[in-house]
Design a binder for these strands. Structure first.
Lengths: 146, 146
DNA sequence: TATTGTTATACTCTATAACTATA
DNA sequence: TATAGTTATAGAGTATAACAATA
């Protein structure tokens, strides 16, 4: 007899992940930004990089970045400038306004997390983090005895 | 300064949930079924029900069920029949062939879970389940002191 | 010839509203 | 008139391939 979806740990993790993702997307959009644009600002905050590097970091196709960066640039939150060393490249950089918006986004995400994990103590949150870190990301590594 | 996505428990849960979801979807498709069709068979296995009940249980719009059930019926895995008591209603039922396919799907999902949680002991998996169960699903309930 | 960014296209998913047949 | 199921349509999201500029 087949187990019900809710009985399985895999489904539970999948559903709670989807719930969490929805709440965080909602928080990311707090400044009127599309969630993926906010994610892009987050990736961009530590250091400028080329579009290809950014696309690789975000695990999306470079062509998808074009529309995102157009919107961020139109809103004055990020800037593209040619790399003088290789004029094919665009160096993408977050602006001051972008950093300011990102601060607000970050606070909203923190607030969403406080709500989501309100019933867990700090120790339990640390425990949850540790367990999630040990979910197997790459099954191939296991088969090879890694 | 904004925290990196990977530093936040919310993002970690969201990303591991997405990973888990992708693995499970892949397992659900093992019998050549579309993952959402396999999910429908799962919901249908315990007892027959009307399309509206099924849609409510799966949290999708009733109109989305139509194509799913058409495919399941064409494949001989589920059947619609009119409710004699209310001829507007369709009672949806899993067939013997559907139950057989579901058994294979269920094994594949179990296998995917064993891979995903290979690094966790049984006790740790129970712990993870308990923690995930306490992630706050309904923020409104908290604000009202529930 | 290969690489960076861009554009164009098509395909899937989802959400919505209109339609039918029954009640 | 309200409800169950169906159909049609449009929108967002995503994946792919072709393209222009530069190396």
């Amino acid at each position: 007899m087949a187990a019900l979806p809710t009985d399985r740990l895999g489904f539970l993790l999948s559903f709670r992940g989807e719930l969490t993702s929805a709440r965080i997307r909602s928080a990311l959009g707090v400044a009127g930004l599309h969630p993926r644009n906010a994610m892009t600002l987050m990736r961009l905050a530590p250091a400028p990089m080329s579009q290809r590097e950014l696309a690789a970091a975000m695990e999306v196709d470079p062509s998808q970045l074009v529309a995102i960066l157009n919107e961020l640039e139109d809103a004055g939150l990020a800037e593209r400038r040619r790399d003088p060393a290789d004029r094919r490249r665009h160096i993408v950089e977050i602006t001051e306004a972008g950093a300011a918006v990102l601060d607000r986004v970050d606070q909203a995400v923190g607030e969403a997390e406080r709500e989501l994990f309100a019933d867990l103590t700090e120790a339990e949150q640390t425990l949850l983090r540790g367990l999630l870190d040990r979910v197997v990301v790459d099954p191939a590594a296991h088969e090879c005895g890694e």
